[in-house]
Amino acid sequence: TRVETATETAWISLVTALHLVLGLSAVLGLLLLRKQFPAHYRRLRHALW
């Protein structure tokens, strides 16, 4: 049972790390898009919101 708990903890930390990386890359991508293609960014924002 101890090994299972350790594996679960590892999976949870892995998933958390993946979510963090995905969130950060999404934010960075949006910032880059905003900087380089303001028109595209505006259109995207209108489409999303």
Rank of each mutant, 00 (worst) to 15 (best):
T1H: 11
T1E: 13
R2H: 14
R2S: 14
R2I: 14
R2G: 10
V3P: 01
V3M: 03
V3R: 04
E4C: 05
E4L: 12
E4P: 02
E4A: 13
E4F: 11
E4Y: 13
T5C: 06
T5E: 06
A6K: 10
A6G: 14
T7H: 13
T7L: 12
E8C: 00
T9Q: 10
T9V: 14
A10F: 07
W11C: 09
W11T: 00
I12C: 01
I12Y: 09
S13W: 12
S13R: 07
S13F: 15
S13L: 14
S13M: 14
S13P: 03
L14H: 08
L14I: 04
L14M: 15
L14T: 01
L14N: 02
V15N: 04
V15I: 13
V15M: 11
V15H: 08
V15T: 03
V15W: 08
V15Q: 08
T16K: 03
A17W: 08
A17L: 10
A17H: 02
L18Q: 03
H19C: 15
H19V: 15
H19S: 15
L20I: 13
V21F: 14
L22R: 07
L22M: 12
L22K: 04
L22I: 15
G23A: 14
G23S: 10
G23L: 15
L24F: 13
L24C: 07
S25W: 00
S25F: 05
A26S: 08
A26L: 13
A26Y: 04
L28A: 05
L28F: 05
G29H: 05
G29P: 03
G29K: 01
L30K: 05
L30G: 13
L30R: 02
L31M: 12
L31D: 02
L32T: 05
L32E: 10
L32G: 06
L33H: 04
L33S: 03
L33G: 08
R34Y: 08
R34H: 05
R34A: 12
K35A: 14
K35N: 09
Q36Y: 04
Q36V: 06
Q36E: 11
Q36H: 07
Q36L: 06
F37R: 06
F37E: 06
P38S: 07
P38T: 06
P38R: 03
H40P: 12
H40Q: 14
H40M: 10
H40R: 10
Y41V: 13
Y41Q: 00
Y41W: 15
R42F: 09
R42E: 12
R42M: 11
R43Y: 11
R43P: 09
L44R: 05
L44E: 02
L44V: 13
L44F: 14
L44W: 08
L44S: 04
R45W: 07
R45L: 07
H46N: 14
H46K: 10
H46V: 10
A47S: 11
A47P: 05
L48N: 01
L48Q: 02
L48P: 04
W49S: 03
W49T: 03
